[in-house]
């Protein structure tokens, strides 16, 4: 591996009492890396190195969607960490945000207009950041989870996940519908 020749870590490196990190756990500073899109794939190079295909994943997709991002190579092996999208050039940042939007197909519910019950299933008519849709939830009490305080995730009957990041930020009507449900 060629990592040894590359700059390892930045000021974010934790204190001296920690055991030494393996080279893969590096933090990638915005100044050291460059991204570009080739066809359907995102590519990255470090310094003047080779372009290689990468994917960007969220380490804390619920609480930190824009920070703590891991860059993986085409074999899903860890290359390094992007601590924050702040600090990237606007055009680079757009590219990364676009890649995240591409990978995370989890619609965010912005409003609930109706919840209809049919037997054991509930049909929710909702507005999301990806457009209007209706989702069918079976066994609501188990499929609606609150992984973080106030942050709800809803899994529909087909295995899709929807999010309500701030329950309190929904409009009153949506909140009332939601309150009756869970």
């Amino acid at each position: 591996m060629s990592e040894e020749t590359l700059p390892t870590g930045s000021a974010d490196e934790p204190g001296a009492e920690w055991p030494e990190l393996p080279p893969e756990g590096r933090t990638l500073a915005p100044a050291d890396v460059c991204f570009r899109r080739e066809d359907a794939r995102l590519q990255m190079r470090e310094g003047e190195g080779e372009w290689r295909e990468v994917s960007v994943v969220r380490l804390f997709p619920l609480s930190e969607p824009e920070r703590w991002l891991a860059v993986l190579d085409d074999k899903q092996a860890d290359i390094g960490l992007l601590c924050d999208l702040e600090g990237f050039e606007p055009e680079q940042r757009l590219l990364l945000e676009d890649e995240l939007r591409r990978r995370y197909l989890t619609p965010v519910i912005t409003a609930i207009s109706a919840i209809r019950h049919r037997g054991d299933v509930a049909e929710w008519t909702v507005a999301t950041d990806r457009g209007e849709t209706s989702i069918v939830v079976r066994n609501v009490r188990e499929k609606v989870k609150e992984p973080l305080p106030g942050h709800l995730t809803i899994e529909d009957a087909q295995g899709n996940r929807y999010e309500i990041p701030h329950r309190a930020a929904l409009d009153a009507a949506s909140r009332r519908l939601l309150d009756m449900e869970i």
């Binding site: 080739e38 066809d39 359907a40 997709p61 591409r102 990978r103 995370y104 197909l105 989890t106 619609p107 899709n160 996940r161």
Partner: peptide, 14 residues
């Protein structure tokens, strides 16, 4: 992908 997927093909390596 997370919550779904994408179908891709290759053409001349792209």
């Amino acid at each position: 992908l997370v919550g779904g997927g994408a179908l891709e093909v290759s053409r001349n390596g792209t």
